[in-house]
Design a protein around this nucleic acid. Structure first.
Lengths: 207, 207
DNA sequence: TTCAGGAACATTGTACACAATAAACATTGA
DNA sequence: TCAATGTTTATTGTGTACAATGTTCCTGAA
């Protein structure tokens, strides 16, 4: 078995990303390479690379010769991202063929179930990440790799948004149940209804 | 006056990007940090950072512990990217308000004119980059920052695509003239026709 | 001949040191 | 007191050295 030895930069990137998405690092908070390096017990080099990558995914803001800072999301940005999500996911749904859907359905169903299960045992973070996986898989099912790539990039900020929104438990359950509902509509070939549901789902708007 | 001193990594990123987009570095070609460092007369550190960033923009493929390689675009990817472009730009057009259009119109018109002028004096590369600027500005005019960011990211590969397509001069002129035609339609509020034209424009399909 | 194993080499990953610049602070004059 | 300016300090940008790993080529046995 091939042990995929992740680079330190990869590990630190993942760690920092999780910290940010768990809200342990607040928006606008300054980041110092030196401090993180000693915290992780490595040199600045991989930390620096991790920070650059976080910046590429829009999780930190980088000003040249100046401190990096954890990125926040304004209300306007939140709306923009949500609007864009609706567009991208509807585009995906329009392009999902029956065969590809069939193929990916078990995976999609699993994510949908995991979301709800994780929430029920109090693992809100994991529920959120499974939610992300569901939507990423949905978009991938379109077969359009460029779309999938763009969406994966957007996902980091979508996750940031979820944390910020901080929905209460009841609404969250209702929200997560829409996943399997969506799959049913798609299986039945009700594309237009599926797109309507996505809009409601993403914008958290009522019917 | 504030002199914005670009970092070496920035400069090298730009240089390499241009080299790739000019086709001086062929797809699948291997990249060695060491070689580039000595070519640019700097250490590996900024070169490394530039390569990472190129990878983030999809211009080079990066495998851990292995060589980086200039990215190519398959026919399937080309279609995917074009489809996605149509979607994103139509989304933008739908969201462009009269006021924002008014504000940006001079800039858009200038890009449209520069495209044609640059081509007429044989500067095909510059014509292409002005073409990119036109479409980026168009998308920015929507006022949706998330959309603009996503599109700018996609732009690197769109440029790669243009080089690969290598349209003949005649078709290119016709293609570039569609820019001002598009602006006219939008000014007249003929949104649906503008979207139809974008589809034709991007997919290079006839009416 | 061909395949397995290993040694030599090439190249990336990381640590560390120094240089360059921005931020913070103190000092002086009004 | 306050503003302007010089000085110190903190932090990022870059260069260099070494470590870890992947690659290539050779050797020898089936």
């Amino acid at each position: 078995m091939q042990i995929v030895q992740q680079s330190l930069a990869d590990q630190i990137y993942t760690e920092l990303k999780n910290s940010i998405l768990r809200g342990e690092l607040a928006p606008r908070e300054k980041i110092r390479e030196d401090e993180l390096a000693s915290r992780f017990g490595v040199s600045r080099t991989p930390v620096r690379e991790a920070i650059r990558r976080l910046s590429d995914y829009g999780l930190v803001n980088l000003a040249p010769r100046s401190h990096a800072a954890i990125a926040g999301i304004s209300d306007k940005e939140a709306r923009d991202i949500a609007d864009l999500r609706v567009e991208l996911e509807c585009f995906a749904i329009d392009h999902i063929s029956g065969e590809l859907l069939e193929e990916r359905l078990p995976e999609l169903s699993r994510y949908a179930a995991e979301c709800i299960y994780a929430l029920s045992i109090g693992e809100r973070d994991r529920s959120f990440s499974e939610d992300s996986l569901f939507h990423i898989a949905l978009v991938e099912t379109s077969g359009n790799a460029a779309l999938a790539e763009v969406y994966r990039r957007l996902d980091a900020r979508i996750q940031l948004l979820r944390v910020k929104q901080n929905l209460d438990e009841d609404r969250l359950v209702g929200y997560l149940n829409q996943h399997s509902e969506l799959l049913s509509l798609m299986k039945a070939g009700k594309t237009d209804e599926a797109k309507k549901l996505i809009r409601i789902h993403v914008l958290h708007s009522e019917a």
